[in-house]
Each structure stands twice: as structure tokens, then as C-alpha cells.
Computed example of a mutant assay.
Amino acid sequence: MSNQTAVNNVPTIDVSPLIAGATHAHYQTTVEQLASAAHQVGFAQLVGHNLQEKHLQLLEMTKRFFALPMEEKMKAYIGNSNNHRGYVPFGEEVMASGIPDTKEAFDLSLDLPANHPSVTAGAHLLGPNQWPQLEGFKEAVMAYYDAVFALGKNIFRAFAIGLGQDPELFLRYVTTPPSQLRLIHYPHNEAAVDRPGIGEHTDYECFTLLKPTAPGLEIFNTAGEWVPVPYNPDALVLNIGDLLQLWTNGYYVATSHRVRKVKEERYAFPLFFTVDYFTEVKPLEAFTKPGDAPVAGVVSGEHLRAQTMQSFQYMLKRLKNGEATLPDGALPYYSLGREASTL
């Protein structure tokens, strides 16, 4: 990581060649741009993704859901789920700052029946979604999920090629992953100028594809500064997560980020792309040198579950009451990422 710099700009990359496939004339150039952004910044803005129509449908249904009375939303409360799916009310989630976030959310993933083999094998974060009684909501949400997940597979392949590795290096571990889509609502709030809308953190998974509807996102650069990410209404924001940083021994970097000074109403739709639950993630041999101190690996789903259990109120209550325990070898909350390494 010695050639990383104090980057103040997040690059914009046209990913249409990745969607077109390896025969596209600009495929390799796009791969190189993506790999450079993952190494230097940990962030990029992606255009040419063709998700606009499905995003508009998703946004309309999301607004309808969050406009429901609280008692209706709480019928799908995430604490009623055994696999972390459903409505997240204000104050439910606490990030590294220790201050509850000023947002509400709806969390979902692959909609699998309880008797699916991946669920019965003990993958705690897999299973059925909770759905509100809102006509058209499930259909619009899953249509967007499927489309952005397909884009994520193209990006994951490009990440492997950008490392000079087999294109299927990572995708061979993507069959039924607990890749989560969050529908997030930050309401209009004048008081939010002096507190986070969502606190500083790195994402726990491999990478994130975020569609926001307003500014507010900031990243923590190598100079130790919080830098705003300019809002581009046509772009998806890509950022590297903990697992891809670990897999590449820090070559692809998970940069801490936060949402600040949220006065206007804002919606955000991050897909947290990850690998199958029981995938062991540790530094690739190509990114280790003789004499390097050994770096402990993690089981991807257990890492995600451990971090989640330490940041949601309903999970923390279960831990306190002895109703749940952290996975063996669980890392402390917020122990990876660029900012965490400076604390």
C-alpha cells in the first residue's frame, strides 16, 4: 500500500464494458480503472450501469413503505426475524461513535425458504425475508435486488482480473451468499447538521454498490481527513469492504465512510455484495511475502454476523440476556478498515 496517496477525488468509471463482456474493446481498460480505484481510494462512482428504471420503481415503493404508520412498519420489525431481515426503526443501529443513527431502514437478502439446504446447514443470515402488506413492494424490491446483484457479479469478476488472477477466483464462492440490500431513509432534520446520519464505519462484506438520492457521503482518506463524495444522480457508489481488503492483504482497501449533515430528506440503497456464508477468507498467496506476519482469516458469514450482533440493539439485548453468543473468534466491532487502523 506504499504508493497509495491522500486522494481527495473519487473517480468516475463507465462500467458498460463490464456488462458487455470481455470481448468489448474497452473491457480491459475498465478493469484497470476499477482495480486502480480499489487500490488507491477504495471508492468509485459507476455510470453506465442501466439500473435507472428499476431504481425509480424501487424508490417509489420505498417512499410508500416509510410513509406507513409506525405500527404498520413494526409488524416487520427486524427483531422478530431469526435471520436479520425486516424493518429497522430509528435508533436501532449504533455505529462506532456509540451514537444511535438518525435513520430508519428495511433489510433484506436472498428470499430462501426455511428448509433450503443453505439455511438448514446453519448459515444464520440466510432464510426468508419479512415483507410488509404493501402491494407491489416485494416485486419492485426484488427486481432491483436481482439487477444490482447481476452487476455485482460482473464487478467481482473484474476485481479478480485486475489482480492478475483467474476471473472466477471470487465468483466460485458466490452461490447463495447473504448479500444484503438495505432501503434506508434519512428524514428531513435541521438538527442533523451536528450529528451523523450514519456513523463512521467500514462495510463488513466484499464490496458495496450504493444508490443514494442526495449528498451526504464522506470518506476518510490517507491524510486522515474526511472528504465529501460529490453527489452524481446517475452513479452508483462503489466501495471496498472488509473481506476484499483481507483477501488482498490490504491491496484493495476498505475506506471508512459516514453520512454527515443530512438536512434534506435522503434515501440510500446499498447492496452489500459478499460470498457464501462458510467461505474462509484470508490473504491470497500472491499478496503475501516471506517473513510477513501471519494474518488471521475469517469465515465470511460469521464475520458479518459478529459485526451485526455488536451494532444492533435487538442483538445486543440477546447477547446481554444470554439468548445468543458471538461466533468463535469474533473480531471486535469495527476492527478493520483504514480509519480503524489509525485509532
Rank of each mutant, 00 (worst) to 15 (best):
T5L: 04
V7P: 02
N9M: 11
V10C: 12
I19T: 09
G21W: 02
H26D: 14
Q33E: 10
L46C: 11
G48N: 04
N50K: 04
L58H: 05
L59K: 04
R64C: 07
R64H: 09
F65W: 12
L68W: 01
K73S: 12
M74H: 00
A76G: 00
R85C: 15
R85I: 15
Y87A: 12
E92N: 01
V94M: 03
A96S: 09
S97V: 08
S97H: 08
G98N: 08
P100S: 09
T102V: 12
K103C: 15
H116W: 08
H116R: 03
G122Q: 11
G127A: 11
Q130T: 08
Y144M: 10
V148K: 02
F149S: 06
F149K: 01
F156L: 15
R157L: 15
A158D: 09
L163V: 05
L163R: 03
F170L: 15
Y173P: 10
P178M: 14
L181K: 05
A191F: 14
R195P: 09
I198S: 09
G199T: 04
H201F: 11
T213D: 01
P215C: 05
G216M: 09
G216S: 07
L217I: 13
E218W: 07
A223R: 02
A223L: 00
G224L: 02
W226K: 05
P230W: 05
A235W: 06
G241A: 02
L246R: 03
G250K: 00
Y252Q: 07
A254D: 07
S256R: 01
E264R: 00
E265G: 10
R266H: 04
Y267S: 01
F269G: 01
P270L: 13
F273G: 00
F273I: 03
T274G: 12
F278N: 15
L284I: 13
L284V: 12
L284Q: 06
E285P: 00
F287R: 08
P290L: 12
G291F: 05
A293K: 13
A296L: 12
A296V: 12
G301P: 06
M309S: 04
Q313C: 04
Q313K: 08
M315T: 02
A324D: 01
A324I: 02
P327I: 00
G329W: 10
G329M: 09
R338H: 13
E339S: 07
S341L: 13
L343N: 08
